[in-house]
């Protein structure tokens, strides 16, 4: 039971990260029907920017408790959102009217570019997050020890997801995003500036991905430049699992995938941990391509 509970909370914490990244995939897919392959690398960039800011602040002694961490998170969100905005302008907007394959290849190119840019700037070795930021306190819930950082992560990802859900459901801009996702042409006729909506989506998604990057850095204590594509692929699996294009779906899918993976690693085999997520991806696409809550993605033959 103790083992199960530990794996469950660990799975929820990691699943929260998957969910935050998956939201970026799913929102972009919603408005553009494009898989943003570079999204995983935006997550990496977020993690590294967090590393830079933490070490810079750590040196000047400005980080003091949760306030400093929050400040860093907000700064990373802003910076990664800017990169996402530029990415859409440079690599995707010129291809808006061309074939799907062109956009996919362009996205892959952008992914390779970002990954190698990070490697050139920070070096090929992994980087260690400063130790003293993350709370080492361990909570005892019903006699079971849970690290505080894990609970904070679950809370933070849930909080961000709820905020996003509120934003898309209750605000005017959120309604514009949903309208664009349903029918771009009709949205244009209703006076929605579709280009601005797409730019906005390319800022919100990467911002959440960037936060996820910093959270991974805080949780595991280290980041490396290739981690983006594994996390990206798993988050994409999460988006598919929940139903791509569907915002609550990405949240559910992420948490579920995290838990499946943690329990699978604990009870089946740790060596096959990464394979479990990909197996889930293949199975879901074969058995229920619409995901748990989403639209259909497979052609009938």
């Amino acid at each position: 039971m103790e083992e199960f509970f530990q794996q469950l909370t660990n799975g929820l914490a990691v699943g929260g990260i998957y969910a935050l990244i998956a939201l970026g995939y799913t929102m972009v897919y919603g408005v553009l029907k494009l898989i943003n392959f570079a999204h995983g690398d935006l997550f990496t960039i977020g993690a590294y920017l967090g590393f830079t800011l933490f070490t810079a602040f750590g040196l000047s002694g400005l980080v003091s408790g949760p306030g400093g961490v929050l400040l860093v998170l907000v700064m990373v969100m802003g910076l990664v959102a800017l990169i996402g905005f530029l990415l859409e302008r440079v690599a995707y907007r010129p291809l808006r009217s061309s074939s799907r394959l062109s956009a996919v290849v362009s996205a892959l190119g952008a992914s390779i570019f970002f990954q190698n840019a990070v490697m050139l700037i920070y070096g090929a070795k992994f980087q260690v997050y400063p130790n003293d930021i993350r709370p080492s306190y361990v909570l005892s819930i019903m006699g079971i020890d849970v690290p505080l950082v894990r609970i904070m992560m679950i809370a933070a990802s849930l909080g961000l997801m709820l905020a996003l859900y509120w934003f898309t459901q209750r605000t005017r801009i959120g309604a514009a995003i949903r309208a664009t996702a349903i029918d771009q042409g009709a949205a244009k006729l209703m006076g929605i500036d579709v280009n601005r909506v797409i730019s906005l989506v390319f800022m919100i998604g990467p911002a959440l991905g960037g936060v996820a990057g910093v959270m991974v850095g805080l949780y595991y204590g280290q980041v490396d430049f290739t981690m983006g594509w594994v996390y990206g692929l798993k988050a994409f699996t999460a988006a598919i699992l929940g139903g791509i294009g569907n915002i609550p779906g990405a949240m559910v899918g992420g948490l579920l995938l995290g838990v499946i993976e943690a329990l699978g690693a604990a009870y089946i085999s740790i060596a096959w941990k990464d394979a479990i997520a990909f197996l889930v991806l293949i199975l879901i696409l074969i058995i229920r391509p619409t995901g748990l809550l989403g639209e259909r993605v497979a052609d009938k033959i």
Binding site: A271, D274, A275, L285, V297, A298, D299, K300
Partner: peptide, 26 residues
């Protein structure tokens, strides 16, 4: 997987190549 639409096929084939690599390592 043959009936999957464009980019989904792409993602699944990436998944397959990774599973093969993990299987070989294990």
């Amino acid at each position: 997987i043959i009936h999957l639409r464009g980019d989904y096929l792409l993602i699944v084939t990436i998944g397959i190549v990774e599973i093969v690599r993990i299987a070989l390592i294990n």
